[in-house]
Computed example of a mutant assay.
Amino acid sequence: MPSHDGLHRPPEGDPSVYPPLDPRRAAALREQLGLTHGQVAWAISAFLAEPLHPVTLLAWEQAAEVPTGRQIKALAAALWCSPAELLGEPATLVQCRTLLGVTVEHVAAEVGMTRDRYADAERRNRWRGSARQTQALLGTLSPPPACFVAACGRTGQLRVLLREAVTGWWPNYVHPVTKIVPVAQTEVQRALEQLHLTYQRIDNHGEAGADAEAVEQEALAFLDRIEEHLWDRLRDQGA
């Protein structure tokens, strides 16, 4: 529910409304401050008014356990940073909104939908807005490309296009991919060219006398994660 100040207050015990904790960021911030697991766990315990064992903090940093929203806030306080500095990339519409700290009503008004219709889109993580509403959503929530494509239910279609692009004539796929992925066409073009070259280097290993089966397995593994490779390239480009 929204609070008196209009900001969204997500359920404190529900980690799904938050982007995932980035274990490397959490560990790096703690190390930069020169703090031990015990010292940070003590500060978290004081914030929560309940004990937290250093082993639990270690489990967070090793991605073996997932902290609740309340625990993320306590960890941020212990490390003198904002919760956003500890979190990874949002994967759903609700995580995008939670990270911004705005209400369902605010986003619904911005995109020109009824509250119930937008809330249903968040609940299902399925976006079916018009072109104008989609542009408004992108401007309001700024979802990462992977999050937006998943919410539109087009990850499978994108995967097919990317596989065809890296194994064939990639320039033919710049426009179709750009219609799915909400980044500049120049960024898509650069990423597709890099992915194509990477795949061709793998595929050409066989011509150099490498074990054919090993080359085939490496190529298949690359294709199996093709959309993840695209997101990595776009992140590296700052898209």
Rank of each mutant, 00 (worst) to 15 (best):
M1P: 09
H4E: 13
G6C: 05
G6S: 07
L7E: 04
S16V: 10
P19M: 06
D22I: 02
A27N: 05
A27V: 03
A28N: 06
L29I: 08
L29E: 08
Q32S: 12
L33H: 12
G34A: 05
L35I: 00
T36Y: 04
V40N: 00
A49D: 09
L52I: 12
P54L: 03
L58F: 06
A64N: 04
T68P: 01
I72Q: 01
K73R: 14
A77D: 02
A77M: 00
A77Q: 10
L79A: 08
W80N: 09
C81P: 03
S82Q: 13
E85I: 02
E89Y: 01
A91I: 02
T92V: 11
L93G: 09
T98Q: 07
A108P: 10
A109H: 08
E110D: 07
T114F: 07
T114C: 09
A119Q: 14
D120F: 10
E122H: 06
R123C: 05
R124K: 14
R126K: 11
W127P: 13
R128Q: 12
S130R: 10
Q133E: 15
A136R: 15
G139T: 10
L141F: 07
P143S: 04
V149L: 04
A151E: 11
G153W: 03
R154M: 12
T155Y: 00
T155M: 14
G156N: 12
L158H: 10
L161W: 12
R163L: 03
T167P: 03
W169M: 02
W170L: 02
Y173W: 14
Y173A: 02
V174Y: 04
H175S: 10
V181C: 07
V183E: 15
V183D: 08
V183K: 06
A184T: 04
E187D: 15
R190N: 04
Q194D: 09
L195Q: 08
H196W: 14
T198Y: 06
I202C: 02
G206C: 04
A212L: 13
E213R: 14
E213Q: 13
Q217D: 09
Q217P: 00
E218K: 07
E218F: 01
E218G: 00
A219I: 08
F222S: 05
E227V: 15
E228C: 01
H229Y: 11
L230H: 13
D236I: 03
G238V: 03
